[in-house]
Design a protein around this nucleic acid. Structure first.
Lengths: 130, 130, 130, 130
DNA sequence: GTGGTCTAGACCACT
DNA sequence: GTGGTCTAGACCACG
């Protein structure tokens, strides 16, 4: 993961979104430990306080929990994880449909453009692995 | 048009996007006058200065121009308008594909979800017109 | 006279200053008629209302007066004219001394620089007349 | 430093000139930290945002720079500082000569008046220190 | 009545 | 506590 400092999106928000996505796709699993504040801060080259901020918000949202001074753990409530996945998907779909509707792009063209973009990304990925 | 004060997106940015969309779909045409700061501010129930901020940025982007103290006018350069339309589409597609890829949602499911959302909106529209 | 539209100084202020200077140096004399609003506006390529604004302020300051629909006249009170000249000079001197003092430039250097600048301008003028 | 609210000159412009002068005379040195927005705002009894405006413009002019959320620092490029000093002097001289030329004041009288004003200020200063 | 600018206050992200 | 940004209100020059 790489943090973008463009300032378009707050750093701590990027961290949260990264975890949400990783949880949503099962890359990080329920009950699994996450890196310590210092560890992640060092890895991403950001301030530990910023990581702290992200973890705090994640805890408030019920994404992770901590027990004393032990490492934080991804929630074991599968419902919560399902919710996260679904809200991420719904947000993406809703915003997208909202925009293409405003732009009055025909459905067929939209699907075509998405298909093209997906192919492009697929090719890039393949090239990287070569 | 309605401004969302969720605070997720700055008001003046919403105003800019609204104009870009209206220009892109030809609802607002090249050479046409746009409402004065005060007029639009009153309509949207925001401060005239927020509109001013949006207009200023639009002028810097070459979307509109103003001559002295006359009303602002949509640019007459059709190339610029075409550019706007294309960049709006590209942005929407790119962002969307980026998200669904991160979430590893299968292509078929994506298309299905978009289709469902489109149908929902269609129904709402129909109901409104009844 | 030429109006600068740089926007650094309001147009109507430039007009006032022009008249004050002309009066101060005796180029425009006491009791003399000044151009009509329309005339001057056309000459300077500005809006008659802007000239009107300048004249109005000049009248309030006792620089000019008008009698019915006849052309405006430069005041006949010599004291007022003397005052104008003196206030222009005082303003110039005060501001200048204020700045060079803030910048801690030695008096001798100041005089030298002024002398150089005067010589430059003198040369330019001479060249123009050749 | 004292801000004049005569309104003849914008407050933030006065702040910028103050810093330029202080830098020019070496009172504020290269690499030195400048007061935070709030600090200076409180001192001058103006709004922190007005200071912010001044600082922003100073940064765009390369006078100061800031690294993240640390205090702003005076530029370390000595050339830039020299430039500032010289442009301040040139501006002052040019504007002054321009005015006295328009007013057709004889050179000798100008020098005399400047001398008088300098003496006046000198006396005031002396009195203050007594 | 038009656009332009200055000052201000509140809020935010980050340290 | 630091700098950064958004919204707002008042005022100005101009037509």
């Amino acid at each position: 993961m790489a943090i973008r400092f463009d300032k378009r999106e707050a750093v701590y928000i990027q961290v949260i979104r990264y975890f949400k996505e990783q949880i949503a796709i099962g890359e990080i699993k329920s009950g699994q430990e996450i890196p310590s504040r210092r560890e992640l801060a060092q890895q991403l080259k950001i301030n530990p306080n910023t990581v702290q901020r992200a973890y705090k918000e994640m805890e408030e949202e019920g994404l992770i929990y901590t027990d004393g001074n032990k490492p934080s753990i991804i929630t074991k409530e599968m419902d919560r994880i399902k919710e996260i996945r679904e809200s991420l998907i719904t947000e993406a779909i809703d915003q997208f449909v909202d925009r293409i509707t405003s732009l009055q792009i025909p459905k067929e063209q939209v699907f075509e453009l998405v298909q093209i973009k997906l192919n492009e990304l697929g090719k890039e990925d393949k090239e990287k692995h070569d």
